[in-house]
Amino acid sequence: MAQDDLNWRMEQACREAWPSALEIVADGWLLRRSGGRIRRSNSANPLRGTRGAPGKVIDAAEAFYAGHGQTPLFRIPDIAAELEPELDRRGYGREGGTIHLHADIDALAGGGYDDVTVSPAPSERWFEARFRTGGYDGAERRVFREMTRLIAGDKAFVSSARDDEVVAFAFGVIRNGLLVVEAVETDARFRQQGFGRRTVGGLIGWARRAGAKAGCLQVVVDNTPARALYASLGFSRELYRYHYRRKTVAAWTTIPTTTATSPAS
């Protein structure tokens, strides 16, 4: 597969693995809104193919987000960086550098672990662990639950427990043969004990049995522990990076940023 094809295939798969409640297309960009603090589901994302003139795209996105009381936010991957000069001119700041990693499924370490629970839907224990470690408020809990309900395609929610308490978790979605690894987290009390590696390994094992041909994920550039975990599992190939551009305007409500662990915000 050509590099450009792989990049855009991954771009689509990662976007569909974390759906937004509202999405509209404007001049080749997908304007996404879900509420909450996850940036990629509340930002303008480029689509493959012909995209509009930067000024026109930014005007449309600014009007869309202002209409919903949100600060305009653009997700800018290296493979579609044409808005950068105009965003600079308009005073948008830069934040949230993130890496896309990819590996063939046979290059990834993973299998079936007796202590890793794999389910096609998130249990209440899985949700509770996610909300506890992520510090979600009531509104964000509703947003996240709705997001998981909207996911299409094969999916699995995995977790590891200690004394009947979920201490590590993740979920994965297979889109067109590509496993997207999402929401990886280990409770701070149980880190450096192998729970994260076994949990993601269990997800990889599920994806291999389900017929996935490759795996991918997004990780924040400066998240050294997460990057080390993924390298140990075989995610060694970097495809491209992305960052966000945000302009704070007093009249609009700013979406808080997040310092999510692995699959990046």
Score class of each variant (00 low, 15 high):
109 A>N: 11
216 C>N: 09
33 R>E: 13
89 R>V: 05
203 L>D: 08
4 D>M: 09
232 S>R: 12
254 T>R: 14
70 Q>L: 08
9 R>W: 05
184 V>Y: 04
139 A>F: 10
170 A>I: 01
87 L>Q: 12
184 V>M: 06
22 L>A: 14
113 Y>H: 14
35 G>V: 03
99 I>Q: 12
46 P>M: 08
191 R>T: 01
154 D>G: 04
171 F>P: 00
168 A>D: 01
234 G>S: 12
244 Y>F: 15
170 A>C: 13
195 F>A: 03
152 A>L: 09
160 S>L: 03
4 D>Q: 14
83 L>V: 07
145 R>D: 00
138 G>N: 06
134 G>H: 02
109 A>P: 02
70 Q>V: 03
240 Y>M: 05
240 Y>W: 11
33 R>Y: 15
35 G>S: 08
170 A>S: 14
155 K>F: 00
31 L>W: 04
87 L>D: 11
19 P>C: 03
260 A>P: 01
212 A>G: 10
134 G>P: 00
247 K>I: 04
6 L>I: 09
115 D>S: 09
120 P>W: 03
99 I>G: 04
114 D>Q: 13
237 R>E: 15
89 R>A: 15
14 C>M: 14
232 S>D: 14
53 A>P: 13
258 T>G: 12
170 A>L: 02
46 P>S: 12
167 V>F: 00
41 S>E: 06
236 S>Y: 10
201 G>N: 05
142 R>F: 02
25 V>A: 15
61 A>D: 13
38 I>E: 00
201 G>K: 02
100 H>Q: 13
191 R>H: 04
109 A>W: 07
242 Y>V: 04
80 A>P: 04
118 V>I: 13
12 Q>W: 10
66 A>F: 09
165 E>P: 02
146 E>G: 03
227 R>A: 01
96 G>P: 02
57 V>W: 06
147 M>Q: 09
167 V>C: 03
157 F>C: 02
146 E>A: 09
84 E>C: 14
119 S>R: 05
